[in-house]
Design a protein around this nucleic acid. Structure first.
Lengths: 233, 233
DNA sequence: GCATATTTGTCCGTATGTATA
DNA sequence: CTATACATACGGACAAATATG
């Protein structure tokens, strides 16, 4: 079998010191499953059976277990010993915690922003593109661009570890978004805010930018919590 | 090598070695290996052979692979595809990045500290105990207590995710410490600082505490970088 | 409350490709 | 360039824990 055989290892034969190779299967599947999770292809709280999922991806149970370990450590899956692995279902408490951490990371990143960092240019582009997509009414695209906008913001302070930690947060947050229908309401009001943020950062008014950001985070958190509340009923 | 000779795990097929197993074997071994890594039982950059390490712990290669995945995602091991897993050897660049992130997380945590949080009491105890151990000349204990002091500091803002991310940072930092001999120099000057920090936090002078913290982080980072530099020669 | 079926946790053996001496 | 060692990945097996009827 092994229908996942198209992972041809064409890698560089001439590969010098750094590995020129394709990544292990577990990493590939891990990315695929993560995408499926945030796309909502698995329901929140759903149980993932090892045999079934392994067959679904055409990989062995052992390899899938490595994938589960990774995604569990990233907070996207939850593991109950001897019971199995389930899709995480972040509730209000998780959202509050995620935003608490967002505040710390993003405000810290903005205040430690490196002047003239290329990520600022990227933020400007993303804010512009989001404005265009909003005009077209493509809210899904607006949401994605907004995510990338904030990811670029964290990259302003040029710390790989901080960016990685923030990436995990965003992935978990997208898991929440997947459950909410009213995407327009979630992202529309912040298109303007993003433009203001870029302007402030370009002028080097970091404190003012941090302040604007705080307001954004507050409103965003509240609207998500409200939408979640509506879901429960 | 492996002076911890009592690790003789006679893979108890008959033995009741998997005792009242609450958590999976991979998690248990993961914790053990992490402790050994920060204790310096494996040298930095050392290659970890699957068969050998699996035999050393009396577990299967499949289970060990799960352990390697976890520790790699935590930054304590490095994985080169098709070449194997190696103990991470964080250099100057890593230290700079770790401290950049420490500044963001710890200053953010202090400024978002919840008044009267029990972690503040714990900080006070830890600072006191560190002072006592320093008088006894037990620098290893002082180092550990200092770590716990800062961990408690992050818990002041009551965010499980932030605390978890900070824990990963500290583990990686301990990997660096393991390579440095002069532990006394690394931890002694900060015993006093910790006392000042507790006082400021008790008085609710958060901004002043954040400032004091910044000074600590700056000095600490510099002394570590200097010690690393000395190692290279 | 019990017997049974399902699933996890863990191990082993093995084939294949990759890197290194 | 060949030989060896090793990582990668698969499938099967079985005990123990859990879910099910």
């Amino acid at each position: 079998m092994t229908p996942a055989g198209d992972e041809a290892q064409v890698g560089g034969i001439v590969g010098d010191f750094p590995p020129a190779n394709g990544q292990p299967l577990a990493d590939v599947i891990c990315d695929r499953v993560r995408e499926m999770l945030i796309a909502g292809d698995f329901g929140p709280g759903e149980k993932l059976l090892e045999q079934q999922v392994a067959a679904q991806f055409g990989i062995s149970r052992n390899t899938l277990r490595e994938v589960f370990r990774l995604l569990t450590s990233q907070g996207l899956l939850v593991h109950y010993p001897n019971r199995g692995v389930f899709v995480a279902a972040p509730g209000a408490a998780a959202v509050v915690d995620i935003y608490r951490m967002r505040r710390v990371i993003q405000q810290g990143a903005v205040q430690a922003a490196i002047p003239g960092h290329p990520a600022l240019v990227r933020m400007k582009e993303l804010a512009q593109r989001a404005k265009e997509q909003a005009a077209d009414g493509d809210w899904r695209a607006v949401g994605t661009l907004n995510m990338e906008f904030h990811r670029a913001m964290v990259e302003l302070c040029d710390s790989p570890r901080l960016s990685a930690a923030f990436g995990l947060l965003l992935a978990e947050l997208r898991l929440v978004f997947g459950r909410i229908r009213e995407t327009a309401v979630l992202h529309t009001p912040y298109i303007e805010t993003n433009g203001v943020l870029v302007d402030l950062l370009e002028q080097g008014r970091l404190a003012a930018a941090a302040d604007e950001l705080d307001g954004y985070l507050l409103k965003s958190e509240r609207s998500i919590l409200a939408a979640l509340q509506r879901l429960k009923s």
